[in-house]
Structures are given as structure tokens and as C-alpha cells.
Amino acid sequence: MIWFDSIVESKVSGDQIRRAISAMTGDAYHDISIIRDILDLSEQPVTCLVQELPVGGFAQQLTFYVEDRFSSVRSRLSIDEAAQLLSMGLGVNVMIANDASASPYAMILLDRKGGSTSVNVNSTLLDEQGIYRLDQGGFPSVPPVSETLP
């Protein structure tokens, strides 16, 4: 069963992910599976699907799955808490969907020091190129003046 999706600012290794999840959930390092294709989903207590993102924004999407029989970890930690622990454990900024907003571009940016901020991602870049890049100041992206001049 899917636990949560996260978008990480820079590339992280399978070893880093296993260590962070192990510290967060208490599962043994070897009980955490790292996969690159959903068809490889296993019956490990926790599985992380790692997907590389296009260059120009955040680097990877990490999707976490928890086996139903190990779902107690999901009841102990909210998604926000789990993502914050992930950010701190990996030492990178992490974004998750802002479920309090109706906008599909609204995210929560969790920093590696324990802080969080509501942000928006650039809708054009995400929709057209799959690039997760923050809008500046939370406002819709406007191309620089030099790009709009003939």
C-alpha cells in the first residue's frame, strides 16, 4: 500500500534512503527495498520506488510503499512527520503535496533542519516537461522580460 510520495532536491543513494527509513520506522536496513520500476514491488516491510526527474529542478521522486502487515508505522507517523524525518535523515530538502490546498501545484517544502514552508511549483514546467521547480515568491511564473521581447 502506498504510504507517501516525496520530491527530493538532490540525488540520494539507495544506502542513504535505507538508513533514513530505518531510523524513521525502526525497520532493519535489509528489510527496506529500493526499486527503480514499479513491477519490482516486493513484499518487504518498506519499499522505495526511486524515479529520476528531468534536469532543471528537483532531482528525484521517492514513492514509499508499506506492506499492509507493517502498517503500524503509517499510524505512528503522519505523512508530514515522516517526510520531515526523511528530509533530516537524507540531509536534503524534500517536497510533498500540500493536501490542505485544492491546487495540484501547492507543496510543502521541508528543509533538512526541521523547518517547513508552503510553496508552489511552476505549473508550466511541471505540466510540459515534468520539472519540479519552485515558483518565485509563490506567484505564477512569468518569463523574464528578455524572453518576451521580439
Rank of each mutant, 00 (worst) to 15 (best):
V94N: 01
T63N: 06
S72H: 12
V94S: 01
G114D: 10
G130R: 07
T148I: 15
S101E: 14
N93D: 11
V92W: 11
Q51P: 00
I96K: 00
L62R: 05
Y132C: 05
T117K: 08
P54N: 06
G57E: 05
T148W: 11
S141L: 07
R112V: 02
A100R: 08
S71F: 05
E67D: 09
R76C: 06
G115H: 15
G89Y: 05
P140S: 11
L110W: 02
L126F: 15
G137I: 06
Q61L: 10
E147T: 05
Q51M: 13
G114M: 14
S78L: 08
A82N: 00
V119Y: 09
N98K: 05
L134S: 10
R76N: 12
V142T: 11
A102P: 04
L125F: 04
I79F: 00
G56F: 08
V66H: 00
D127R: 13
L125S: 10
M107G: 01
P104T: 11
D111F: 02
E52K: 15
V121T: 09
S146P: 00
G91R: 08
V121G: 04
S141E: 12
Y65A: 03
D68A: 12
Q136Y: 13
E147P: 01
D111K: 01
S118T: 07
D68P: 09
V92A: 11
E52T: 15
D111Q: 11
A102T: 11
A82Y: 01
S101N: 03
R112D: 15
M95V: 12
F64S: 01
S87E: 01
Q51S: 14
V50K: 12
F64P: 00
G91Y: 05
S123A: 13
S87R: 01
L62G: 09
Q136A: 14
Y132P: 01
F64H: 07
V73K: 08
D80Q: 10
A83F: 00
I96E: 09
A106I: 05
E67W: 11
T148D: 06
G115R: 12
S78R: 11
D127V: 06
S71D: 14
N120A: 03
K113D: 15
D68H: 11
N122E: 13
E128I: 09
V92N: 10
D127Q: 06
S87D: 04
N98C: 06
S123F: 13
E67R: 15
G130K: 15
N122H: 12
L126N: 03
R76E: 10
I96G: 03
